[in-house]
């Protein structure tokens, strides 16, 4: 009897936990990458998220050797910032951090991280595993983060995207940016692969 009531209690306690389960899944559009760009105090922070379809042409977990090679090649390409973004010479920007990884695709998860300088006073964005990847959908996405130290951030008026030349399936970038002039949004595609700030 006592065990019964304990079991009952346990099930009652478990019920609200089950009810608290949340289900949600983000929108996912092939051909459209999203870009977040922030500038402050000489630091330029760029986050680019692209659907796997745009980068490697598939979004399932890489299973064959060819698939794995493609993912690896793509990550290597993205690890070189010049392949993705072209900053104006006048801004005098140096890369301080590059981070590229693949998430989604049935939990498959590739990481590559390069840090060229150590830099103090700069907060690392916490990548809470499982939070970022909580909706492990069947769609994989490549996420690249580039941090630059720039001498003249006010010269960052136009940013080019060789990204489109690298990845033929990428069609469009939806960008949001925050600079000294405030926040803004822009959309651009492979015909005019440029983001103009301010």
């Amino acid at each position: 009897m006592k065990t019964m009531s304990l079991a009952l209690l346990a099930s009652v306690a478990a019920a609200p936990l089950l009810a608290q389960e949340t289900r949600e899944i983000g929108a996912h559009v092939h051909g459209v990458s999203t870009l977040e760009l922030a500038v402050e105090d000489g630091i330029l922070d760029i986050n680019l998220t692209s659907p796997g379809m745009d980068i490697v042409g598939f979004e399932y977990a890489a299973s064959t050797d060819a698939d794995k090679d493609a993912v690896e090649a793509a990550i290597r390409q993205m690890l070189t910032p010049e392949n993705i973004v072209a900053l104006p010479e006048a801004a005098g920007c140096r890369v301080t951090e590059v981070l590229v990884h693949l998430h989604g695709g049935e939990g498959h998860h590739d990481h590559a991280h390069e840090e060229e300088h150590d830099h103090e006073g700069h907060d690392h964005e916490e990548h809470e595993e499982g939070k970022d990847h909580e909706a492990e959908s069947e769609h994989s996405a490549f996420h690249a983060r580039y941090v630059f130290d720039c001498d003249h951030t006010d010269a960052l008026t136009m940013i080019g995207f060789p990204f489109f030349a690298q990845f033929e399936n990428a069609q469009e970038i939806e960008a949001e940016f925050v600079t000294d002039a405030g926040a803004g949004a822009a959309e651009f595609d492979r015909d005019t692969p440029e983001l103009s700030l301010n």
């Binding site: 922030a38 500038v39 402050e40 630091i43 907060d123 964005e125 925050v178 926040a183």
Partner: peptide, 20 residues
């Protein structure tokens, strides 16, 4: 605090599991 954290915080809020 810092402009560089805006998008991070935005993502955290948009993915806040307890409430949409």
């Amino acid at each position: 605090q810092s402009r560089l954290q805006i998008f991070g915080l935005q993502r955290w809020i948009n993915q806040y599991p307890e409430e949409p």
